[in-house]
Computed example of a mutant assay.
Amino acid sequence: MPDRQLADPARKLNEYNVTQNESEEFAMERLTAVVPYELAGMRLDQALAELFADYSRTRLQAWVKSGRVTVNGRALKAKDKLEGGEEIVLEAEEEVVVDSEPQDIPLDIVYEDESLLVVNKPAGLVVHPAAGNWDGTLLNALLHHDPHLETLPRAGIVHRIDKETSGLLMIAKTLQAHNSLTQQLQEREITREYLAITRGRMTAGGTVDEPIGRHPTDRKRYAVREAGKHAVTHYRVLNRFAHHTFIQVMLETGRTHQIRVHMAHIRYPLLGDPVYGGRFQMPPDCGERLEAELRNFKRQALHAAKLGLLHPVTDEYLEWEHPLPEDMAHLLEALEANERR
C-alpha cells in the first residue's frame, strides 16, 4: 500500500514526469517519459507503444513523422533503436478520440477538481460501452458531465468494476492525470478495498495468489489457470454468520472478475454471483426476513468501498470511503438478525 504522506517531490511515476502545455490555442499536452532500461534495443515506435499505451501505434507513428516526438531533444525515425535512459518528449495533440454520445445520466460525484473525478457507481450501471450495452453507460454519463472528456482515451476511465458491482471509480480529466493514474495502477500504488459477502463460513482471512485467464470453454468467464496472468487477492474476516461471511478484500492486482474468481476458487463464492456462485440454495435455519432478502438479492454482493491514490498534480495521497449501498446493508442486517433468532 502507498505511504499516506506527501510524496517526495522528486518522485516520478514509473519514470514519468508529465507536464501540461497551457496554450489553449494549440490544445496540446506535453508528456515526458524516461525510457526504462528493460526497453533497451527496442525501436522508438515500439517503445512509444509501451510508454503511451493509450494511443494507437498509428497515431504515435504520425506524431513521430510530424516532429511531435523528440528523444533527448532530437527528432528520430520510428525505426531508430533506443539504448534506455533517454528522455522522450511527446507533444500529444488534443483531438476527439471517443465517439459515444453524451447522455444525461445522474452521477454520484464523491470528489472533483480540474484533473480528477471520483464517482460512486451504482450496481447495474455498465462502465464502458460494449456488445449488448452500447449506451446508458458511465462513459455516456461522463461525456454529458464534461464534454472535454471526449478527447481522452475511454473518456478518462482508467479502471473498471463489473456492472453489478457498486462503489468508487476514478476518472482522469486531463492527459497528465490519465498517464499518472495509469502508471499508479501498473505500479500497484492505488489503494483498492472492497466489502463482500460470501457463501460459506470462513475460519480466517488469507491471501489467494493464483493466475487468472479466460475460461477454456466459456469465453465470457474467467478462471484460475496456470497460463493466466499473475493475480493476488488479500481478504480478512469482518463478521461470520452461520452460512455466510462478511469480508474486506484488498486487491494487489486488478484482473477482470478477480475477486469473484478467487473467492469461488477457494470455495467461498460471492453471495448472489450468477456466474461463479453456482445454483442458488437457501441455507438451513433461515428465518423469514433473511429468506426474503436472499431471494430478492439479484447481484454479486460486492462493493468498492475504499479508493486511495496520489493526486496526479500535487502528489498528495488522497483517500475516499463510501458505505455499503442499501441492498447490501439490508442483507447484512438480515444476516445479523438471523443470528440472534
Rank of each mutant, 00 (worst) to 15 (best):
Y55A: 07
L48G: 02
V69P: 10
M42N: 11
T58A: 13
F52S: 01
V64Q: 05
T70E: 09
R43W: 10
W63N: 10
T70V: 12
L51V: 01
N72T: 03
E50A: 10
A40L: 06
A53I: 01
E50M: 11
L60C: 05
V64Y: 07
T58G: 12
D54Q: 15
L51G: 03
N72M: 03
L60F: 10
Q61G: 10
K65N: 12
W63K: 09
Q61N: 15
L44P: 06
T58L: 11
A53H: 14
V69M: 09
A47P: 02
R57E: 14
A49H: 09
A40Y: 02
N72P: 05
A40E: 08
R43Q: 13
S66H: 12
G41R: 08
G67D: 01
L51R: 00
F52G: 02
T70P: 06
R43V: 01
Q46T: 08
Q61C: 14
S66L: 12
R43D: 04
D45E: 12
L44E: 07
S56Q: 03
L51D: 04
G41P: 02
R57F: 11
S56D: 07
L51M: 09
R68S: 09
L60E: 07
V71M: 07
F52Y: 15
L51T: 02
L48F: 10
E50K: 12
Q61K: 15
A40I: 03
Y55N: 11
G41V: 04
V64N: 05
A62V: 14
N72I: 04
W63G: 08
A47H: 04
D54W: 15
V64C: 06
V69Q: 08
A53P: 12
D54C: 13
E50N: 10
R68F: 02
L44H: 03
V71R: 06
V69T: 01
A47G: 00
L44Y: 05
R59I: 13
L44M: 02
V71E: 03
E50L: 04
S56M: 03
T70L: 10
Q61R: 15
A53C: 12
Q46Y: 13
Q61T: 15
R57L: 08
A47M: 08
S66C: 09
R57I: 00
G67L: 05
G41H: 00
Y55K: 06
R57D: 14
D45N: 09
L44S: 05
A49F: 12
R59A: 11
R57Y: 10
D45C: 02
A53Q: 14
T70Y: 03
Y55I: 06
T70A: 08
Q46R: 12
Q46V: 08
R59D: 12
R59Q: 15
R68M: 11
D54T: 15
G41S: 00
V71T: 00
L60T: 01
D45G: 02
N72D: 12
L44K: 04
W63A: 14
D45A: 05
S56C: 03
V64G: 03
V71W: 02
L44T: 00
L48T: 06
L51H: 07
L48I: 04
